[in-house]
Simulated scan of single mutants.
Amino acid sequence: MESNLTHFAASDAHNTTTRGLTMQEANQFIGDTYGNEMVCFFMENAQFCWMVKRSLEMFPNE
Rank of each mutant, 00 (worst) to 15 (best):
P60Q: 01
C40M: 12
T16K: 14
N36T: 04
G35M: 02
F48S: 06
N45V: 01
F42G: 02
K53F: 10
M38Q: 06
E25H: 04
A46E: 06
T6R: 03
N45Q: 09
T17A: 14
T18C: 09
H14T: 07
E44H: 08
H7G: 14
A46S: 10
L21A: 04
S3E: 15
M23C: 03
A46H: 00
P60W: 00
V39L: 00
A10Y: 13
G35Q: 01
N15S: 14
A26L: 09
A26Q: 08
E2A: 10
G20Y: 05
F8Y: 15
N15W: 15
D32T: 05
N15E: 15
A9W: 03
S3M: 13
S55E: 10
F48G: 05
G35C: 00
I30V: 06
C40T: 12
M58P: 14
T17S: 14
G35V: 00
H7E: 15
F59T: 09
T6A: 14
Q24N: 00
A13S: 15
E25A: 02
E57G: 06
F59L: 10
E57F: 04
E62H: 10
N61S: 09
F42R: 02
W50D: 07
K53W: 10
L56N: 06
T16R: 15
I30E: 12
E25L: 04
L5V: 08
C49V: 09
T16E: 05
F59K: 07
A10C: 13
L21N: 09
F48N: 07
D12I: 02
W50F: 11
N27D: 12
C40V: 11
A46N: 04
F29W: 12
N61Y: 11
T33N: 06
L21F: 09
C49H: 06
N27Y: 12
N15F: 15
E25T: 01
E62Y: 11
E37P: 01
K53L: 11
T22L: 06
L5A: 14
N4C: 05
L56P: 04
H7P: 15
T22H: 07
N15I: 11
F48T: 08
K53Y: 09
Q28E: 11
S55I: 04
F42H: 01
R19E: 07
C49P: 02
L21I: 07
L21S: 05
M58Y: 08
N61G: 00
R54T: 10
T6S: 14
C49D: 04
A13Q: 13
G20M: 08
L5W: 10
D12G: 03
E37K: 12
S3A: 14
E44C: 07
N15C: 13
A13N: 15
L56T: 02
F29Y: 12
H7M: 14
K53E: 08
R19P: 00
G20C: 05
R19V: 01
A46T: 01
T6N: 12
A26V: 06
F41I: 02
E25K: 04
C40D: 12
H7V: 15
V52D: 00
C40Q: 12
T16D: 02
T33G: 04
C49S: 05
M1W: 14
W50S: 07
Q24T: 00
V39T: 01
Q47H: 11
A26N: 06
